[in-house]
C-alpha cells in the first residue's frame, strides 16, 4: 500500500475540480468497462510488456477531477472503474497528475519522464509496475485517447479535440511561466 500523494504543484486548487463530471460513478463504470475491453481487443500484444504486473491494480489519480480510476490490466480479468477519493482501494502503484497531463500521456503527445522530472507526475508504490504500464501503453499502434474518442463517434472526436486544445494552452501557459 502507498501513502496518499500530496504536492503543492498538483492540488486541485481553490477552484475545486474543473473537470468535474456530472455523472454518478455507477453510471460511469459501464462506459469505462466498455472502453478497456475495446482497447484490450484492439491491442492484444500490449499485455506482453506488462509481464507479471498485468495482475497488479493501479490507481490512476487525476488530481483535478473528483474521482480516481482503478485499473487491472489483466486480459483474463480486466477491471477498470471509477472509485471515490475517500477510501482508495488496495493498489500496487498510484499515478497522480492533472487530468490534461494524463490525457496527453494517453494521446502519446507527452513524455512521462518529462512530466516526472517537472514533478507534474507523481508515482508511488511499485515503480517497476508503473514503468511496465507506461511502456505497454506507449507501444500501442493508435493512441489510447484517440481510440476512446473514436468509440463515441463525432462527439467523441470533437471532445478529444477540445481537450487537446485545452492541453496545448495549458502547456503554453506553463512554458510562459
Amino acid at each position: 500500500m502507498t501513502s496518499e500523494p500530496q504536492s503543492s504543484r498538483l492540488g486541485a486548487g481553490p477552484g475545486g475540480f474543473p473537470f468535474a463530471p456530472p455523472l454518478p460513478l455507477f453510471l460511469l463504470n459501464p462506459i469505462l468497462k466498455r472502453i478497456v475491453h475495446r482497447i484490450a481487443v484492439q491491442n492484444p500484444d500490449m499485455f506482453d510488456r506488462l509481464g507479471p504486473h498485468r495482475h497488479a491494480y493501479f490507481l490512476i489519480d487525476p488530481v483535478d477531477i473528483p474521482f480516481m480510476l482503478y485499473l487491472r490490466p489483466d486480459p483474463e480479468a480486466l477491471d477498470f472503474r471509477a472509485v471515490g477519493r475517500r477510501n482508495p482501494p488496495p493498489h500496487a502503484a498510484r499515478i497522480s497528475g492533472k487530468f490534461l497531463d494524463l490525457l496527453t500521456l494517453m494521446d502519446t503527445e507527452q513524455d512521462g519522464d518529462a512530466l516526472f522530472f517537472s514533478r507534474d507526475l507523481i508515482v508511488t508504490g511499485d515503480t517497476e509496475a508503473v514503468v511496465c504500464l507506461r511502456n505497454a501503453l506507449d507501444d500501442v499502434d493508435d493512441p489510447i485517447a484517440e481510440s476512446v474518442a473514436d468509440m463515441f463517434g463525432p462527439p467523441g472526436r470533437a471532445a478529444l479535440n477540445a481537450l487537446r486544445r485545452a492541453a496545448e494552452n495549458a502547456q503554453k501557459r506553463k512554458g510562459a511561466k
Binding site: S8, R9, R119, I122, T124, T127, E128
Partner: peptide
Amino acid sequence: SPAACVKYERADDGSM
C-alpha cells in the same frame, strides 16, 4: 537502477 529497486517516497511537505 532497475525499476524494481527504485522507490519514490513523498513527505507531507511535498518533498520527494
